[in-house]
Amino acid sequence: MSGIKFIDATLRDGNHALKQQISTDTVEKYCRGMDGSGVEAVIVGHGNGLGASSLQVGLALETDEDLLGTARKSLRSTKLGAYLIPGFGTIKDDIDPALDIGVDLFKIGCHCTEADTTRQHIEYVKFMDKTAYGILMMYHLATTDRVLEEAKKMQSYGADGVILMDSAGASTPELVKSTVCSLVEALDIEVGFHAHNNLGLAVANTYIAVQEGATIIDGTLRGLGAGAGNCPIEAVAALLQKEQYDLGLNLYQLFDVSKEIVAPLMNPPLSGLDDISIVSGMAGVFSAFKVHVINASREFKVDPRDIFMELGRQKVVAGQEDKIVEIAEKLQKGEIRR
């Protein structure tokens, strides 16, 4: 065994691409299909995690409890995971009910410079004897030293691993290499990488992360996910297998679920490497803003690419979708120049 774990975020990040409309029916079919495939865990829920169904990010079709409860029934050997961003969800309203449902693994995320907002939650999950991974979102916006400092905080709270999220798909291969290398050298816990494909580098960047010592690959089947999508698990798995990594994955099982369950969900106007997603990657803006940027560009009759470039100039972070409306309105009034 190579010791590489795959975390499957299809039903979580994919929810962004599907405007948070994933149904319990899809969750049931998907989890049945993926159970025993060799992936470590299937993460289920709203794109921004537990408690994030909102006007700001998007109202979910189903409640967190219904989605997790459905998944729980369909997963036997594969772990069930949930994501939580402090500031959106809380221990009382969200982690406790998820524990009752039987979630095995929690990813606790924050902007890459704000690890101390995850202390309560990581410590709580560990206290409850479950797996906790710390997630540093939008890591391209901070220096490598700062990212390392924040990762060390998560380690000190008891996290089992730290996963870097390239939330904007803005990473260059050089940045992946230097950041992953520095974390792997300095931390005693596992390091993971979650790629986005805005610059067409999701598989390549994930592969580089593995070469630098990352042992957690966080991706989605067929790349279904926010913006240009994520690292397609089946493709990177095939690449690693070709390079003689023994992954313990049933590749055909992944292919079948990808083809039979994920492909029919895909929404061409919202996913893929189109101009809007590429501009989002250039500007270094959270991939999941795409849906809201398109909506605002229609409402205020402005170019979505201009909105993305201005969001990038203003260095907005995940959760700041309300800036989109303000910028669209200012572009329309000519208060912001293109």
Binding site: Q56, P86, T90, T117
Partner: peptide, 29 residues
């Protein structure tokens, strides 16, 4: 941070007179 979101939501209901409410907090560096 948990108490922040919870308390803000509670005040929107108790003081603001709103039936159903939610609060989100974001830190930007």
């Amino acid at each position: 941070i948990d108490e922040f979101t919870q308390t803000t939501k509670d005040a929107l209901i108790e003081v603001g007179g709103i039936k159903r409410a939610k609060a989100i907090i974001v830190l930007n560096p």
